[in-house]
Design a protein around this nucleic acid. Sequence first.
DNA 1: TGGAAATATATGCATACGCATCTAAATGTC
DNA 2: GACATTTAGATGCGTATGCATATATTTCCA
Lengths: 147, 147
Amino acid sequence: MIKKPSTAIVEAWVALNRAQQAALLKIERAFRDAGLPPLSWYDVLWELEKTDKESLRPIEIERRVLITQSNISRLIDKLETRGYVKRQACPDDGRGQYIMITTAGRDIRKRMWPVYAGAISDAVGQHLSEKEATELATLLSRLNNGS
Amino acid sequence: MIKKPSTAIVEAWVALNRAQQAALLKIERAFRDAGLPPLSWYDVLWELEKTDKESLRPIEIERRVLITQSNISRLIDKLETRGYVKRQACPDDGRGQYIMITTAGRDIRKRMWPVYAGAISDAVGQHLSEKEATELATLLSRLNNGS
DNA sequence: TGGAAATATATGCATACGCATCTAAATGTC
DNA sequence: GACATTTAGATGCGTATGCATATATTTCCA
């Protein structure tokens, strides 16, 4: 049984799509223009940095950052090549591995942040008041948390 | 001078990014599972169909759907190959061309709509009331309309 | 305990993307 | 009117993406 969305829902989706695409384009360009890696690198490094544990398994990263499994695998390859993360075999699970951020990884993430922050301000911050931003985040979290 | 975004702004951006990515993934999978073309095809066909004029120039489409120029060019190639649009030389501008949707193009867009509608309901509609959807669309339009 | 199903990760493949650049035509300037 | 600049659109190129599948390992259950 296919449910038809109301006009308001469709408009919300279209606006959501446009807003994200436009913002993402600006942000990725900002990184590129600054000679920095793309946003996905930041996202993964940040997850590794902010977690309580001292390492994450690829599958944990996958769930947190909403990147598909094959791309997480390849992204970790690249991060490892650049020395931003280290892989370590998982003693209790022979299939798995632990991913740890390195000092170089922390450094590059820190260097990326001002550029990211500026781009977020540009693409999002300038257009919304504090209250509106909070409202927007609240509404969007409804979409993200399911239900 | 780089302005730092507030926590609320950053959270809004992160939620925006996640919500759109998750929804888009669902929508693209719905099209694929139904053996239909991707969303970008729908977007372009819909712009051609809903406009008052009987044709649009590639550059006009580009501005409306937020796809980069090179991808618009290639997308039109594919649409033309499938017989969904026709290209026609521009009499008053030798560089340009007019893109017109064909009957087959209208047909495929109509066939795509129920699938799209269902996926929008799934990804967005189910999580928001009418009023919330309207609020969300309003907030997001602030991002899209600049200012 | 042994075999089936599920899970974690890697990889081949086709496609899509963005950027840089190219060509041709239009516009602006002296 | 001639030349520089800008604009519309196409295309080469490297890279990123998602899907399907492969492989190894673990878990589940008769």
